[in-house]
Computed example of a mutant assay.
Amino acid sequence: MSKRKKNLEKVIQQCQKTLDKIEEELAKPEPKLTLYDIEMGNFDEVPRAILREAKREIKIMMQILDKNEYMPDYTYPLIDSYSIDTELCDLLFETKIIYEKYT
């Protein structure tokens, strides 16, 4: 197997791992947050709107597999959200880095 093919396989596996984690998170009941909770960052989950957008973009990444043709931008809302120190957030950033490095 060529090095490029191995790298692309690595990207696909990482994307799938991230999609699985997003699905797992979206399957959980949505927490009831007050406006105060949101403003103060009193939650430890990535907002669902960001997760849905990341899911959409990761599916595109898996199809295109070329950073010159498509780069996701779901990380920008993550940086602005209060959930930057979560395991899922780390996984989302890692996925983008791997995509950028290996495609």
Rank of each mutant, 00 (worst) to 15 (best):
N68D: 15
P72L: 02
A27N: 14
N7Q: 15
I22W: 02
P29M: 05
L78K: 04
D90Q: 05
L26N: 10
L33H: 10
V11N: 02
I97C: 09
M1K: 09
A49D: 12
R4C: 02
E53V: 11
E100A: 13
S81I: 01
M71L: 13
L51P: 00
P29Q: 05
D66F: 10
S83F: 03
Y70R: 03
M40L: 11
K3R: 08
Y102P: 00
M1W: 03
E30R: 07
N7M: 11
L88D: 02
E9N: 15
K67G: 07
E87C: 05
E23H: 09
Y70S: 05
E30F: 10
M62Y: 01
E24D: 06
F43H: 09
K32W: 06
K96S: 06
Q13E: 12
I60M: 07
I64H: 05
T103E: 01
L19Q: 06
C89Q: 00
I22T: 08
I22M: 01
E100M: 09
D20P: 00
E39D: 02
D73E: 12
E30Y: 13
L88K: 04
V46F: 11
F93R: 09
D85I: 01
I12T: 07
S83C: 11
E94P: 01
Y76Q: 00
P77R: 01
E23G: 11
Y76L: 07
Q16W: 02
G41Q: 06
F43I: 04
Q14V: 10
C89Y: 08
K101G: 01
R48D: 13
L26I: 08
P47E: 01
K96I: 01
N68V: 02
E39F: 15
G41W: 11
Q13D: 02
F93G: 07
M61F: 07
M40T: 09
I22K: 00
M62R: 14
Q63M: 05
M71G: 07
K10L: 13
E94R: 14
L78P: 06
L19A: 02
G41S: 08
L92C: 13
L35Q: 07
E39A: 15
T86F: 08
E87H: 05
N68L: 14
Y82D: 06
E94G: 09
I12A: 13
V46D: 03
L33P: 02
Y99H: 13
Q13L: 14
E45D: 04
E87G: 05
T103Y: 03
T18Q: 06
L51G: 08
N68E: 14
L8T: 03
V11C: 03
A49W: 11
C15E: 08
S2P: 04
Y102T: 01
L8M: 05
Q13N: 15
Y70W: 05
Y36A: 11
N7E: 14
D44H: 08
T75V: 12
Y76I: 03
L88E: 01
P31M: 10
E100V: 11
Y70P: 05
L8A: 04
